[in-house]
Simulated assay, not measured.
Amino acid sequence: MTIAVEKVLYTARATAHGGRDGHTASDDGKLDVTVAPPKEMGGNGEGTNPEQLFAAGFASCFHSALKVVGRRARQNVDHSTVTAEVGIGPINGGVGYGLEVELVVSLPDVDRAIAEELVAKAHEVCPYSNATRGNIKVGLVVA
């Protein structure tokens, strides 16, 4: 199923030079990074990598969704955190590569059962969750 956006509210634009071993910057200059493969993948590890950028985006986006559903449920999520762990590895017998994500959510001021409900609801609201649903494995962990 393809998700259709009803109205585009904002468009981010970034340009990469050199792929996984180069430079990436947004058109407004707010993101300007050296990109390098991590040592675990044979690189020098002296820059960020696409998986770190994806993890940062997913964690930030999911946390915003969590704050929205927490507010709607009248729950205190002020001290919550979301950590996204993005793994990359071979798929299809090594023909290509794929990603998997684990979102580790800490809600210290919320009862565990309610925290699990909020995380599940945030997973329905978050644009990254909606974009990845059915495409890659996304695990949800309430820490």
Rank of each mutant, 00 (worst) to 15 (best):
residue 50 P to F: 15
residue 49 N to H: 09
residue 91 I to L: 00
residue 56 A to T: 04
residue 135 N to C: 04
residue 52 Q to V: 01
residue 34 T to H: 11
residue 81 T to E: 10
residue 57 G to C: 01
residue 129 S to G: 00
residue 125 V to R: 10
residue 46 E to K: 05
residue 63 H to Q: 12
residue 37 P to H: 06
residue 10 Y to A: 10
residue 50 P to R: 05
residue 60 S to P: 02
residue 6 E to L: 01
residue 24 T to S: 05
residue 86 V to C: 08
residue 100 E to L: 12
residue 18 G to P: 01
residue 122 A to D: 03
residue 135 N to F: 07
residue 6 E to M: 12
residue 9 L to F: 14
residue 93 G to D: 07
residue 31 L to F: 14
residue 64 S to R: 11
residue 55 A to N: 07
residue 119 V to Q: 03
residue 119 V to G: 04
residue 23 H to W: 01
residue 125 V to S: 05
residue 142 V to W: 12
residue 75 Q to F: 07
residue 96 G to F: 13
residue 67 K to N: 13
residue 96 G to C: 14
residue 53 L to P: 03
residue 39 K to L: 06
residue 37 P to K: 01
residue 63 H to F: 13
residue 15 T to L: 06
residue 9 L to S: 02
residue 134 G to E: 10
residue 132 T to M: 11
residue 141 V to M: 07
residue 46 E to W: 15
residue 65 A to T: 03
residue 133 R to P: 00
residue 127 P to R: 01
residue 11 T to F: 13
residue 76 N to I: 02
residue 135 N to V: 08
residue 20 R to A: 13
residue 64 S to G: 15
residue 85 E to I: 04
residue 24 T to A: 14
residue 25 A to I: 12
residue 86 V to E: 08
residue 58 F to C: 02
residue 42 G to H: 14
residue 23 H to R: 08
residue 88 I to S: 12
residue 41 M to D: 08
residue 61 C to W: 14
residue 132 T to G: 00
residue 131 A to R: 14
residue 9 L to T: 01
residue 127 P to S: 03
residue 92 N to Q: 02
residue 88 I to N: 06
residue 121 K to W: 01
residue 38 P to M: 01
residue 78 D to P: 04
residue 60 S to F: 03
residue 2 T to M: 13
residue 143 A to C: 07
residue 41 M to W: 09
residue 108 P to T: 13
residue 59 A to D: 08
residue 87 G to P: 07
residue 80 S to H: 02
residue 77 V to F: 08
residue 21 D to M: 11
residue 73 A to V: 07
residue 32 D to Q: 11
residue 140 L to D: 02
residue 116 E to A: 06
residue 68 V to T: 09
residue 45 G to F: 04
residue 43 G to V: 15
residue 83 T to S: 04
residue 4 A to N: 15
residue 99 L to R: 06
residue 135 N to R: 06
residue 5 V to Y: 15
residue 129 S to D: 10
residue 135 N to W: 11
residue 79 H to R: 13
residue 3 I to G: 12
residue 25 A to G: 03
residue 7 K to I: 00
residue 36 A to I: 08
residue 13 R to H: 15
residue 92 N to C: 02
residue 135 N to Y: 15
residue 118 L to K: 09
residue 80 S to F: 04
residue 53 L to T: 00
residue 110 V to P: 11
residue 83 T to G: 09
residue 96 G to A: 15
residue 19 G to H: 09
residue 13 R to F: 15
residue 44 N to W: 12
residue 59 A to S: 01
residue 9 L to V: 13
residue 23 H to A: 10
residue 33 V to L: 13
residue 80 S to C: 02
residue 117 E to M: 15
residue 137 K to N: 14
residue 64 S to M: 09
residue 60 S to M: 13
residue 35 V to N: 06
residue 53 L to S: 00
residue 75 Q to Y: 02
residue 102 E to A: 13
residue 71 R to Y: 14
residue 113 A to T: 09
residue 92 N to G: 06
residue 1 M to S: 14
residue 143 A to P: 03
residue 71 R to W: 14
residue 63 H to E: 12
